[in-house]
Amino acid sequence: MLLVEDDARLALLLEQLLHAEGYDTVLARDGQRALHEGLTQEFDAIILDRGLPVLEGLDVLTRLRDRGVLAPALILSALSNPADRVEGLDRGAEDYLGKPFDIDELLARIRALLRRHRSTVPTLPLPQGALDTSSRTVTTRSGDTVDLSERECGLLERLARRPGQVFERDDLLGAVFPDADDPGVVDTYVHYLRKKLGRDCVKTVRGIGYQLGPLR
């Protein structure tokens, strides 16, 4: 879980509270760090303050959504009048809780947030359209449907869940092809994906590996 809070005392309290409930957390104390963590790691949920140094919380959330990050977000902010809550929800948050808050209510909202998110059909944005991981299909912007094999879908899903991250071949090999020994199998399946979806679906980062092509 990504926890974004600039107040040191409150951040420590929230970390301890979430750890006691069994949640692993990554703490970001400013908006730029939150954006970096959100783009390079995969989180089950984001707990996000608004009044952050460097980059305001809603701007962080907007940029994450624009880059295809789908982790559900709960805004936790002292800006809590109706207009503030409406703005937060319209900018991409799934829930909004004002400060000061009741701990039991916060935990209940987090549990509800995770339940709702896990019950939705996992659809991930792609440069060409959207990937439905449940049916292993890509729906293109023109409305066509492209079927993927299990390994093709696994590779594309890995890239699409962290659209800002560059993956080394060995990382992709271990995550998607655990029974294979040769990293060249990653190159082979990238070729298969490009043949089906176009070269822009996966970007080669020379000397490192691959990342999802740029979202439009």
Rank of each mutant, 00 (worst) to 15 (best):
I47S: 00
V69M: 07
V4R: 15
H117K: 03
E87N: 09
D182W: 00
A34H: 14
R158A: 13
T188A: 12
H117G: 11
D104F: 04
S149N: 05
Y210A: 04
L55Y: 10
Q41H: 11
S135K: 14
R50T: 10
Y189M: 07
A83W: 00
D182K: 01
D104I: 01
P163M: 07
T204N: 09
Y189G: 12
R118V: 08
L148G: 02
R216N: 12
D84S: 13
D49F: 10
G57Q: 15
R199G: 05
I46G: 06
A20F: 09
V69P: 06
I110N: 10
Y210Q: 00
E150R: 00
Q211R: 12
S134K: 03
L58N: 01
T25I: 14
L55K: 09
H36G: 08
I47V: 10
Y96A: 02
A83P: 01
G31R: 13
D182S: 08
D6Y: 09
C153N: 08
G209Y: 02
L27T: 15
E168D: 15
D44Q: 12
L212W: 03
K196R: 15
P178L: 04
A160P: 00
A83H: 09
G198T: 01
R67L: 01
V146S: 14
L61H: 06
Y192G: 08
Y210T: 03
G207T: 07
R162N: 00
V4W: 12
D200C: 04
E5H: 07
G143T: 14
L76A: 11
K195E: 15
A160L: 03
L113D: 14
D187L: 05
R115D: 15
D59C: 02
I47Y: 01
A34D: 10
E42N: 05
T25L: 07
D30Q: 15
V186E: 00
I208H: 11
G154N: 12
L131S: 09
P122F: 12
R199Y: 07
C201A: 08
Y210D: 01
V190C: 01
H191P: 02
L113W: 06
A175K: 10
A8Y: 12
D102K: 15
R141E: 03
K203I: 01
R9A: 15
I47M: 07
E168Q: 12
R151Y: 10
S119W: 04
D200Y: 01
L10Y: 07
G198V: 06
H117I: 05
Y210P: 06
L70P: 01
A28M: 04
L39F: 04
R85Y: 06
F101Q: 10
V166W: 04
A71D: 11
Y96K: 02
G207I: 02
V69Y: 08
T204I: 03
A28W: 06
H36I: 06
R9N: 08
A180H: 13
